[in-house]
Design a protein around this nucleic acid. Structure first.
Lengths: 364, 364
DNA sequence: CTGAAAGCGCTAACAT
DNA sequence: ATGTTAGCGCTTTCAG
């Protein structure tokens, strides 16, 4: 590999001139610049990233800290990573991916102190996140995809789960649904203070109260089986849920299966709404009505706010809550009460609306 | 940040002693080692990755080159990345993720020449892959997840798609299916020589011939809609396909929907087999019979064979074709000919087997 | 507008 | 068993 010294010699200048020509940090005569450029091309010169980093104290590398938990099912997960990688590359940074767990502060400390990366992006953030405390203590630059309870001075981008959950409840209420359910993540995840789980649940319950609707949030492991078992319960009885909201994509197949097994039709008997990536919505039949997560955008913004911190002076932190857009597909619709009908039988369809709408107070 | 010199001073030794104590490259007395260790702890010393890399000419970083194409739908995609990251970390390497396209040789050359990474792992490999030629020309260490037509001297790990496709045909034949279809990727992908697409198709067609079965491979974009449209065609006519194989996960929802719309029951009327990750299999109803892709294993092995190359002397290349295990779930079963029945009607079920089994020659 | 030279923090001969 | 020291390839004062 040709070094900067090789280039300098060939161009008949000093190394520092080459360096300055490369960085543009000081004026170089056109002629010199041209000679240097030529020399570089002839030698196929590539600046050495480590040497540059060592000398300048800035590696131009950032890390994405992506703990192996709570990952959503589908296209979304990789999208986060690639959107960050793309965004980083477009501003001249490399991305290293770190997959250690959220409670592995040792690895995080190492990452921050070994000089490899200039800053990190935290994912899977919890309301109280020990990683944040550590990074602040080390005064190490970081941004978050997600946010904590206390975000003083921290740059982050997150989805507005509160708004999404509230809107979803209102949307369902507007369709005439009176008994709703939130299919959340497992109990430990909520207990651990995983942001999306907690915020969605809080907003859901609050909206329920405000609109005087029946229903509750339910813990559910992120598996089709768990979704099935929960849905079986929620759909049983004479006053089953008719509207379900979930951020737990992996449970959706189970929920759908449970509905089908009970002879319930989506969306006629049950509206199902997911907070999810559009790609996931389409793999289901019927296609899911969703609040679309702007995943790629979050990745991009998370990167940008970190890089701005690294490049610019220490300015104000950027804190961004992105809205989720409601995209109505096939899994949601107006409340159309009827008797649950056994599979492959349409018989009960005609009479039930009356019975139910009377019982429920005859909305619509 | 404390440097090695700080440690040396505090321990009353020279920097080289600290360095050797750290690397274990030469004998250090227990007492000295202990003093050094203490000093490091007291100072919270972390070796500087860039300095170390610059001096030793080995950054202990590898790159995963993951072009943004042909990605499968689900858990699999991130699993590749995380399994590589985990494997790398476990042998003391960091992972940088590069997402430039396969034909972006400029970026690849840069990556290889800027001294940041010691080697790369190539993904989404094509039969003739220009990236391979470039890396060989640069004599830059690499391994592949996937493999080319000519793999002389190259270490790789891949799934044995040939075996999987052949086995799938034989499995379906054994169930009595006579008219099969392969739902492949889009025509450009096959034409471009994307390994899995080509190998699966070749093996499929060959197996069809050997077993004297009807059927063909069909191009299909990786979307539910394309899957739907293709399946509608394949399931139409009086001699529709009764067994379908696909590596194209994204098309599966469409295929299933098409079957359902035609009143076809899976697996009674149609067996559907996917070459896929287990996680994907379970999100469908019925759960997919699959040839399970050992994704995490591939990521791990791909990393290990690269690192072995980097650490060890230049030994023989490792070339590994991993088998896919058939996991029978709910989407495949014996050929049970009957008349296609309209939705929610079971009437035709009883009589059709007779008609069809006569027509097909009465297997079973 | 350009050079010279002192590091950045570490490794690895070369010494002893 | 340990110390000395010359780099690794670049950035960035300090000087002109």
């Amino acid at each position: 590999m040709a070094t900067m010294l090789d280039v300098a010699r060939r161009a008949g200048v000093s190394v520092s001139t080459v360096s300055y020509a490369l960085s543009g940090t000081r004026p170089i005569s056109d002629e010199t610049r041209q000679r240097i450029r030529t020399a570089m091309e002839e030698l196929g010169y590539q600046p050495h990233a480590l040497a540059r980093g060592l000398a300048s104290k800035r590696s131009k590398i950032i890390a994405l800290v992506y703990p192996p938990v709570n990952r959503t099912m589908a296209a979304g997960e990789l999208t986060f990573v690639t959107s960050v990688a793309d965004a980083a590359r477009s501003v001249g940074y490399s991305l290293v991916l770190s997959t250690f767990a959220s409670d592995n502060l040792l690895e995080l400390r190492q990452l921050a102190q070994q000089g490899l990366v200039d800053g990190v992006i935290l994912m899977e953030v919890h309301l109280e996140d020990p990683r944040v405390a550590l990074l602040q203590e080390l005064a190490f630059p970081f941004s978050m995809i997600g946010h904590c309870r206390d975000n003083d001075g921290i740059s982050f981008v997150d989805v507005d789960f509160h708004q999404a959950a509230r809107d979803a409840v209102e949307y369902l209420a507007g369709l005439g649904h009176q008994r709703l359910g939130l299919v959340n993540f497992g109990p430990e995840v909520v207990a651990a203070g995983y942001g999306p789980a907690v915020r969605t649940q809080d907003a859901f319950e609050e909206a329920l109260r405000r609109h005087q609707l029946q229903g509750a949030a339910h813990a559910c492991e992120p598996t089709p089986r768990a979704g099935y078992e929960l849905a079986v319960k929620l759909l049983a009885g004479k006053r089953p849920c008719t509207g379900l909201l979930t951020f737990n994509e992996r449970s959706v197949p189970g929920i759908m299966q449970a509905a089908q097994d009970r002879g319930l039709h989506i969306p006629d008997d049950l509206s199902l709404i997911a907070i999810s990536s559009p790609a996931v919505a389409l793999i289901f039949t019927p296609a899911l009505t969703t609040y679309d997560l702007p995943i790629a955008e979050m990745g991009r913004i998370g990167t940008e706010i970190l890089v701005r911190q690294l490049e610019g002076a220490n300015q104000e932190p950027t804190q961004l809550l992105l809205p989720c857009r409601l995209v109505v597909r096939e899994s949601s619709g107006p409340y159309r009460p009827r008797m649950p009908a056994p599979k492959e039988t349409g018989a009960a369809r005609e009479q039930s609306p009356v019975a139910h709408s009377a019982a429920e107070g005859g909305r619509r």
